[in-house]
Design a protein around this nucleic acid. Structure first.
Lengths: 127, 127
DNA sequence: TAAAAACTACGAAACTTTTCGTAATAAATG
DNA sequence: CATTTATTACGAAAAGTTTCGTAGTTTTTA
C-alpha cells in the first residue's frame, strides 16, 4: 500500500520543472537545470532515465525525442515529502513545523489571510 | 557566512535524540535507534564519529565513555532544514507548504489556536 | 586475577547518487 | 550526399552514506 518514494534533490529539481511546465524532454530540463548550475546533457539524461526506472517518471518513446512526465501528481508527491520531512526533522509535529515556517519566513498579509481562511474552515468543519 | 549543513536521515535520527535528551553517549543513542530498527553498535558509533568530523557534533573525551552533543541549537538546524526543504520541494513558497501541512495533517483545535495567535502577532507587528 | 563486557578506532565492503565519456543512430544542414 | 548536430544507450568513475567486522584498551564481574 505504502509505496513511499524518496526523490533525491536532483530528482526534485527535475520534478519541479515538470510540475511547472508539464511533460518535458531531456533538453528542456537540461536547459532549466543549466541555468542554475553546471550540468552536462548526458548527466540530465541519465538522471531522468534512472527516475523512469524507479517509476518516478514515465517515458513516451513514440518519437525519437522522448518525453518524460511525472507518474504521481505534484500534490501527492509533496504530501509524501512533507510526511517524511515532518518525521525526520520535527519528530512528526505538524504544529512545530508550521510555527517555525510562519515565524521565520514571514509570509505577507495576503498569504496570511489565505491561511486564516483555511484554519477557519478546519475549525468549522469540526471532525 | 552560510555554512549550511545537510544532515542525512540517519544523522537526523541521532540529532533528534540529542535534542530531546541532551548530550548523549553512543550506547544511549544506539539503544534509541535500536528500538526503531536494527542497527549495530559500531554502526551508530561510526555515524556519530563522522558527524563529529563534519562538525555537526562535538565530543567530550575527558572520560572513557565519550559524550556527544550538538554544535548548533535545535532551532537553528531546523531552520536550515526548513529553508532547504522549502526550496527543494515547494519552490520556496512558505504559504504552499503551510497550507499543505495544515490541510493534510489537520492539527487539533488547541494547536490551531496557537497558530492563530502567532499569525495575529505577525499581522500586528506590521513590517 | 582471569574472564567477560564495554568502548573506541579503523578499514573496508555494499549501496546509492552524481557525473560524464564514448558509441551508435537518426535527423538536419550545407 | 557528406558532414554536423541531436538524441539515446551504456558503462564506469567519483563521491557520499550506511553497515559492520576486527583489533586493542579499559572496566567490571565472577
Amino acid at each position: 500500500m505504502n509505496d513511499s518514494i524518496k526523490p533525491t534533490d536532483s530528482e526534485l529539481e527535475i520534478l519541479q520543472h515538470i510540475w511547472e511546465f508539464g511533460p518535458s524532454t531531456v533538453r528542456q530540463i537540461n536547459e532549466a537545470l543549466s541555468a542554475k548550475r553546471e550540468i552536462g546533457y548526458t548527466t540530465t539524461l541519465k538522471l531522468m532515465q534512472i527516475m523512469a526506472s524507479k517509476g518516478i517518471l514515465v517515458v513516451d518513446k513514440s518519437e525519437r525525442t522522448h518525453i518524460y512526465q511525472a507518474v504521481l501528481k505534484q500534490e501527492e508527491t509533496q504530501q509524501q515529502l512533507v510526511d517524511q520531512f515532518l518525521e525526520a526533522a520535527f519528530g512528526g509535529s505538524a504544529k512545530k513545523l508550521v510555527m517555525q515556517v510562519l515565524g521565520n519566513k514571514k509570509p505577507g498579509k495576503r498569504e496570511l489571510e489565505e491561511i486564516k481562511v483555511l484554519i477557519a474552515k478546519l475549525e468549522g468543519g469540526e471532525s
